[in-house]
Amino acid sequence: MTTPLRKGLLVGAAGLSLASSVAACAPSAQGSTPQKTSTITGPYKDGTYSADGDYFSPNGGETVGVQLTLSGSTISAVNITVHANNPNTREFQGQFKNGIAAQVVGKKLDEINVTKVAGSSLTSEGFNKAVETIKSEAK
């Protein structure tokens, strides 16, 4: 089995306004942990921008790569790449009686029929940091 080193998570959608893009991450099903919002006031130059934000993972050094495409001061595309720099393979041996998924697969919460969510309610700080960097680049 090979361990993928990069994982792309497409989280954006065309036509989101910059001001609402990060706030939109808050899952409505839980509504407990306040999500930080990134308020951006334009104008910005059109183009595709990339920046890394610190990902506050247990590995310490990991980052998320954020790529935004701006057109008319709105985000037309968002791509987040998680740079996993500490692939863990040590537990692959001797674990066959338990299950292993090579990669977890995400589905949008609003596409699955659930009323409750159990998880981390990750603060999107790394994402927000990267957006801040992009804001200053795009001025």
Binding site: V11, K116, V117
Partner: peptide
């Protein structure tokens, strides 16, 4: 029983499964 989504550790708008 109750269906509960398992929140994606990298993206709170997503789930990685339902239990």
């Amino acid at each position: 029983p109750l269906r509960v989504a398992l929140e994606h550790p990298y993206d709170p708008t997503q789930a990685i499964g339902v239990v």
